[in-house]
Every structure is written in structure tokens, then in C-alpha cells.
Design a protein around this nucleic acid. Structure first.
Lengths: 228, 228
DNA sequence: GAATAAAACTAACGCTGGAAGTTTTATTTC
DNA sequence: GAAATAAAACTTCCAGCGTTAGTTTTATTC
């Protein structure tokens, strides 16, 4: 069956289906044939729309980053912005953990990833951070977020009390971690993000000047969490 | 040629060779046949020593973690310990970035990874951190270290000025990042680690009590870097 | 309307991890 | 020490992988 009268595929449809498969089964189980099957076509048909499998993965990764909200850099001080952006960034990645090893390689030529980098770097420099420091901060945030989204810390511990009993005296409760996955993982990320911002604030005061005031709004999510 | 009189393979030899191949060519290019070829045998021979390819990768990952030095938890305060361990952890992973996506999944049943978790958690609890907080801190450190070792932040930016010119006004110098890979990546990690520890210290003082004094030794690497 | 391009298919290639079967040697059992 | 058993190497084979080349039909361009 050669070219159909109505297009069966589009880049968008391919990317959406690929994202769904990767979310459901992971990167290792993802194959061009599997994807083609889900789309009701054959493997080689994908090559009419993407040069290779990597290009599909690239597009999936950028679709994930496109979900990240960087608007706080235009509306809040740098501390609230880091908190809001970091949270949104981690939410986006945590919703799609299986693609994280792939997208953590850097923006490359991906439009959404570059737009995010542009907004973050620009916002930090505007806040008074020297350019080199702004770069470092962007990098650290990526480390923290990508690291936290790579896979559950809590679920990395096997639910078998016997495993820990003989040789790991302090890990007697480690088998319970997986059962508290969400609270452990989110609690850890929240702690890390807040501690990092607190530490950066100390450096800002020591090397740049007084901190910009936090939003006075009583119901502001950001001010509540950066109270000192 | 059936069973040789002298053993051609050992688990240790397999793991060392696998680690070398992964370091040289990456995880995607790593195959059981490639590994077998390097060892002078055929692919299926590996299955006499490891159940499957994943088990080989597991052993490689644990060999990397075995390089991490956690002894500072027994000799220094928790701040110096986090700094020293975090640095050693990142050094070990940065020396083997290609296996990082694999080992970041958590300790599982790997002896070295469990021993590391045991030492870190035990050290933090002994320093006064509540158990749940100690878990969070362990998780955050993994986020930061694994995230920073996943691949170079600086090299994630393409060395093409034209890419950034039209749509990313703040990224006019981004094409230069790759040329400063080492200083950017290490500078960022150092900043993140120190800021994180500073922030954690603030929480320790606010919720637990006075900080343990830093080592008085004038030449101590740790005290010099945690000065406030 | 003819020529060109695009999008689907099939067939094929070389590669992958691993199972099954065979052969020889080491180790265990008596 | 001989026989039985186990182990470690090989070969053959399987089903799956990403991708290329060629064919056919339809859309688009001139």
C-alpha cells in the first residue's frame, strides 16, 4: 500500500505516541517498530518524518521541557523564581522520568530547552548575578532537578528486611522507604531546593548586596517557603 | 573448543573490561558480543559467569561506587563530611559518566552502594539529624551528584553562535561554554554543594541546635571551604 | 496533463541478547 | 584410580532491533 490519499502520520502524532510509549514502558522497551505498530503503520514509514530514532527522542525530550513554566522570572525576585521554576521543572520531569537520562544531556538545538535556558540565565543576570555565576546556578538547578527526576530514591531500596540485617546496621528501616516513595522523594527535593536557595542567598548577600525583598503577599506560595 | 584447562574468564576480568568499554564507547555501544570479543571469547561464554547483561552492568555500577570515600563521616563533622563525601562521590561518577544513568536508580542489592548509604545515613543520624531528614539529605546529595555527573552542562550547548542569535537574546555567549567545560562544570558543582550545605546548616541551627565547630586545623580543606 | 515529489509498503541487511545443544576438561564421589 | 557429575568454552539458532533500498500509489508542482 503506497502513499495514502490522507496522511496517516504527522510529526506531532509520532512524538505524542512516542512519549506515551516511553512513559508506559521505558526507554529500553521503546522501538521504532513498536511505535509504528501503535500508529498503525510500519517501521520504515517513520523515516519519512524523522531522520532517525534519535531525532524522535529529541523531539520527545523537548516536548517535556516545553511543559516547564519559566514565567516567574519575569514576575518575581530571583529566589521565588528559582523556587517556582525549580518546582515546575521537576514536576515536568517527574511526570516523564523515563526520558530524563536522554534529555539531561543539555539543550543541544532543542527550541524549548534553549528558551528555558534563555529565560533563566537572563532572569538571574538581571537580578544582579554575575554572568559566570548565573551559568553555574543554571547548571546546579539542572543537576538537582534531573538528578531528582532520574528515578525514585525511595524505590531504589529493596523491600526486603533481610537484605540489610547482616551488614548494614544503620539501614534497618530502609525496606520501608519504597512504601513512602512520594513523601520521601518530594520531601527530599523540597529540602534540597530550599537549602540551595538559602545558601545562594547567603552568597548573594556576601558578594553582591542586599537581597531583594520577598513578595509581601500573605498568600504567596514563594514567600511562605523562603521565610527566614 | 570446549572447556579450557585454564579458566579464560573471571567475573572480575569481565567487569573490568566492561567498565573500560563503557567508559570508552558509552552504554549504547556496549554489547555482550563486543565485550566477549575484547576478552577473547564468544558472547554466550559470558553467561557462565553472569545471568544476563543487566547483571554485568550492575557489577560495573557497584565497582564505580566502591571508589567513593565515605571515611570522612567517621572523622569529621557532618558539614565537612558532606563536602568531602560529595566531592569524592562526584569525582567517582565523573570519571565514569556513561554508567551514571544506570547506577542512579538506587542501591538495589549492590554491596558497595548499600555500604555507602549505611555510612552516610548513620553519620547524619549520629550528628543529630532526625532519621527522616537524614534520608532526605542522602537523597538530595544523590540528586546533585548524579545530576552533575550525567554529562557536561557546558558541552550541552552547541558551539554555533548562529543558533542563538535570532531567538535567544541572553544566550549570545553560550557557544563558548563548551570550550570552558571543566571550569564551568566543576565551578557549578562546587557552588551547588557549598550552597546546599550552607542551607542545611541554617536548618540545623533553626531546628536542632548549634552547629558542631569546624575543624580548627588551618590546612583543612573542609574548614577552608565552609567558612562563613 | 506530464513531471516531480512525497508517503506508505516490502524485503533485506547487519547487529543485538540470549537459549539450546555439543564437546572437553575439572571436580567430586565412591 | 575410575566413574559420574559439573563447569566452561564453543556453535547454531531464534526473535528482535534500526535502518537502507526499492516499489507503488497519490499529491503537488510546473
Amino acid at each position: 500500500m503506497p502513499r495514502p490519499s490522507q496522511a496517516l502520520l504527522s510529526r506531532r502524532r509520532i512524538v505524542e505516541t512516542a512519549a506515551r510509549l516511553i512513559d508506559a514502558d521505558g526507554l529500553e522497551a521503546f522501538s521504532t517498530r513498536r511505535l509504528a505498530g501503535e500508529l498503525g503503520v510500519r517501521g520504515p514509514s517513520l523515516y519519512n518524518h524523522f531522520a532517525n530514532k534519535d531525532e524522535i527522542l529529541d523531539a520527545v525530550a523537548d516536548a517535556v521541557i516545553a511543559e516547564v513554566d519559566v514565567s516567574v522570572f519575569g514576575t518575581h525576585g530571583w529566589r521565588e523564581a528559582l523556587l517556582g521554576w525549580g518546582t515546575s521543572y521537576r514536576d515536568a520531569l517527574a511526570a516523564h522520568p523515563n526520558i530524563v537520562p536522554y534529555l539531561a544531556q543539555g539543550p543541544g538545538r532543542r527550541p524549548a530547552a534553549l528558551a528555558m535556558a534563555d529565560a533563566v540565565y537572563g532572569g538571574l543576570v538581571k537580578a544582579g548575578w554575575p554572568p559566570a555565576r548565573a551559568t553555574h546556578i543554571g547548571a546546579v538547578m539542572r543537576y538537582l532537578v534531573a538528578g531528582s527526576a532520574l528515578g525514585s530514591f525511595a524505590r531504589g531500596f529493596v523491600e526486603d528486611p533481610e537484605l540489610y540485617a547482616a551488614h548494614y546496621p544503620h539501614l534497618s528501616q530502609a525496606h520501608r522507604l519504597a512504601g513512602h516513595q512520594r513523601s520521601v522523594d518530594e520531601g527530599a527535593f523540597r529540602l534540597g531546593l530550599q537549602a540551595l536557595i538559602t545558601g545562594l542567598a547567603a552568597e548573594y548577600e556576601a558578594t553582591i548586596g542586599p537581597l531583594p525583598p520577598l513578595e509581601p503577599s500573605a498568600d504567596s506560595y514563594y514567600s511562605r517557603n523562603l521565610q527566614r
